[in-house]
Design a binder for these strands. Structure first.
Lengths: 325, 325
DNA sequence: TTGTAGGCGTTATCAG
DNA sequence: CTGATAACGCCTACAA
C-alpha cells in the first residue's frame, strides 16, 4: 500500500498538495492536479481510512445492535440498514446482544474505543445511562426513551386491526398469545387486543396466554389455551413466529386453520408467507423501518437537522389463507 | 475521552510507562503500576483503538461477505461468525454482495482502506485475482479456489443420502429441483442425485428442473415437473427454500405430502422445521461451519499454524413428516 | 526501571 | 497557489 508521501514524491509536490486534490479542498493549479492524479493512478493509491479517522474522530462505521440476527425479523432490518449505509459510504458492524446487559455494555465499550460513529439499537434491556453521550443513537422497534430518535410501527393500531379482522370474518371467541410483558412492543399489541375485546361478554383473562416471541413456547401456550377454551375460533398471535407455533398446536389437536380456528400473526416476515396455509398477518414495513432509522442516524452523525425524531410507521393487514373462509 | 497523556500526567509518569502497563510489556515497578492503574480508573481511560490500529496495521475487524443476509441460510452463519469473533475480541462487518461483482469489488476497496484484518467470503462471483493478496480470506460454502482455506459441507454425499432415503421409503420416480448450475454447491447436489438414479430405468433428464435456490421459481419449476410427470412420488429439492416452493406447488395440484409425494430438502434451516408438515432435510452444520471458518480466519490473521486448510463437514439426514409414511 | 522521541498516514494551519 | 509542520493517540526503540 502506497501512502500519500509516495504520491507526493512521484508527483514532485508536497503531501499537503496531494491532500488537497484528494479532498478537493483549497487551491491547486490544474496542471499540478493532473500530475498528482496521475501519480495516484500509477501507484493505485487509496487513502488510508484509519489515518483519516484518527484525525477526524470519525470512522464511517455504524453499529447495528439486535437481540439475535437469527430471529427472522432482523435480517430484513439488517439488510435495509446495510443498504442505506453503503450508499452513504458507511459500513455496518453487526452486534448480537441476546438482550444481555453485559454483552450490550461490551459493545458500548467497543463502540467507544473504535470510534464507531453511531448505532441503531433494538433493545429494551439497555438503560439510557449506559449509552455514551457523544455517540448518536437511533432506537428501533422497542421504545426506550423519548429524547432519542425512535422508529416503530403502529403496534397498538395494528393489534386492533388484527382483532377486528377476526371478528369481521365471524369469530366469536378470540384468544391472544402475547409476547413478554416487559417488552413494550408486546404490551402495545396486547392493549390493542384488549381494546377490542375487553367489553365482550365472552371475554376472560384466561384467553390471554404469554409466549416469548418464539415458536416453541407459543405452541405450548396455545395447547393450554385450547385445552381450557375448547370453543375458541380465532387466535391473534403477538408475532408471526408465535403464530407458527400456534398453527402447530392447532394441527396437533386435530383442528384446522382456518375452518375451525382462524389465525393471524404480526410482523409480516417472510415465514408467514412461506407457511401452508399462508398466514394472515399485520405487516410492519420492516425494510422501511431500517432504512429510515439509518437515514436518521446518518443525519445525526453528520449534524444535519432532523425533521422529526419520532417515526411511527403504518402497518398493513394482510389477509391470507389462515383467515379466509 | 481521556488519552494516554492524561493518564501519564495524573500518574506522574511518562506515556511510555502507561503504555507498558496497558500492554503488560516491559518492566514496571509494582508501585508505579498501581499509580497508573489508579489514574486509568479515575479517568475511565480506554485506549483508542484507532490509534492502535494505525501503528499495528490491524483493526480487529473482519468482514463477512454473504450474498444476502435475508436468505435464511445466512443469519445462522452470521451468528456463528459473530459469536466466535467476539470471543476473540474481533468485530464483524456485514456485507451483502448480491453476487454482484461491482459490489464485491467495492467491499474489497473498503477492506483495504479500512485495514480490515480478513474476510469470510460466501461467493462464487468473485474471482481470485480480485482478492487482496495481503488480506487473509476463508471461503465458505461455495468453493472458489484450492489455495485458500475453505469450509464446506458434504454436498455430494448429502444428496446421495437424500435420494437414497426417498428410495428407501418406497419412492419409484424421483424428481430433482436443482439450484443454479453455475453454483458449484448446486452442481454437487445434482451430481449426488444423478449418481443414485442415473441408471434406473425410469430416469430421464426431464426429471430435473432448475430453480434459483429461492421459493418462487422452485414452485413454478415444480408445477412444470408435475405437469410433465404426473406419476412422480418423490422430490429432492436442492435446498430447503426450494423445498417449500415445491410443497406449495404440490398442494396447489391437490396432492398431499407425504402420501402422494415425499419431499426432502437440503440445508436444515429453521424454516424446514417450522413448516407443516415439517420437512425432511439434509442438515448442514451451519453454525459449526461459521464457527470453524472464523477460527480458521483468526488463526491466519494472527499467523498461527493452520491444521488443515480444507474442511468438508458431515451432513445429517433428518427424517421428518414430509418423508414419513 | 523509566523517559525521550520518532513514526504510523492524514489533515489543517500558517507561512511564503 | 504551494510547502512545512504540528496535531490525532499510541507504540517502541533507544537512552538514561
Amino acid at each position: 500500500m502506497s501512502t500519500i508521501r509516495d504520491v507526493a514524491k512521484r508527483a514532485q509536490v508536497s503531501v499537503a498538495t496531494v491532500s488537497r486534490v484528494i479532498n478537493n479542498s483549497g487551491y491547486v493549479q490544474s496542471e499540478t492536479r493532473e500530475r498528482v492524479l496521475k501519480a495516484m493512478q500509477d501507484l493505485n493509491y487509496k487513502p488510508n481510512a484509519i489515518a483519516q479517522s484518527l484525525n477526524h474522530k470519525k470512522t464511517r462505521n455504524i453499529a447495528l445492535v439486535v437481540p439475535d440476527i437469527t430471529n427472522p425479523f432482523f435480517p430484513e432490518l439488517a439488510r435495509a440498514v446495510e443498504d442505506v449505509a453503503r450508499i452513504y459510504g458507511y459500513t455496518v458492524i453487526l452486534c448480537n446482544s441476546d438482550e444481555d446487559l453485559k454483552k450490550e455494555q461490551g459493545y458500548m465499550d467497543i463502540i467507544q474505543q473504535k470510534y464507531i460513529d453511531g448505532l441503531i439499537l433494538v433493545s429494551h434491556t439497555l438503560k439510557l445511562n449506559h449509552l455514551i453521550d457523544e455517540v448518536p443513537v437511533v432506537l428501533l422497534d422497542r421504545l426506550v426513551d423519548q429524547n432519542i430518535p425512535t422508529v416503530t410501527a403502529k403496534n397498538y393500531e395494528g393489534a386492533i386491526l388484527a382483532t377486528r379482522h377476526l371478528l369481521d370474518i365471524g369469530c366469536r371467541k378470540i384468544g391472544h398469545i402475547c409476547g413478554p410483558k416487559y417488552i413494550p412492543t408486546a404490551q402495545r399489541r396486547l392493549q390493542g387486543y384488549l381494546h377490542v375485546v375487553e367489553q365482550m361478554e365472552w371475554f376472560s383473562d384466561s384467553l390471554i396466554v404469554e409466549g416469548n416471541f418464539q415458536l416453541e413456547l407459543a405452541k405450548e401456550a396455545t395447547l393450554h389455551l385450547l385445552a381450557e377454551h375448547a370453543d375458541i375460533d380465532g387466535i391473534f398471535a403477538g408475532n408471526d413466529l408465535m403464530a407458527v407455533g400456534a398453527l402447530k398446536a392447532i394441527h396437533q389437536t386435530g383442528r384446522k386453520v382456518p375452518q375451525d380456528i382462524a389465525l393471524i400473526g404480526f410482523d409480516g416476515i417472510f415465514l408467514s408467507k412461506a407457511m401452508e396455509p399462508e398466514l394472515s398477518t399485520v405487516a410492519q414495513p420492516i425494510y422501511d423501518m431500517g432504512a429510515i432509522a439509518t437515514r436518521l442516524l446518518l443525519k445525526k452523525i453528520e449534524d444535519q437537522p432532523i425533521d422529526s425524531a419520532y417515526h411511527e410507521l403504518d402497518v398493513t393487514l394482510l389477509q391470507r389463507a389462515s383467515t379466509r373462509r
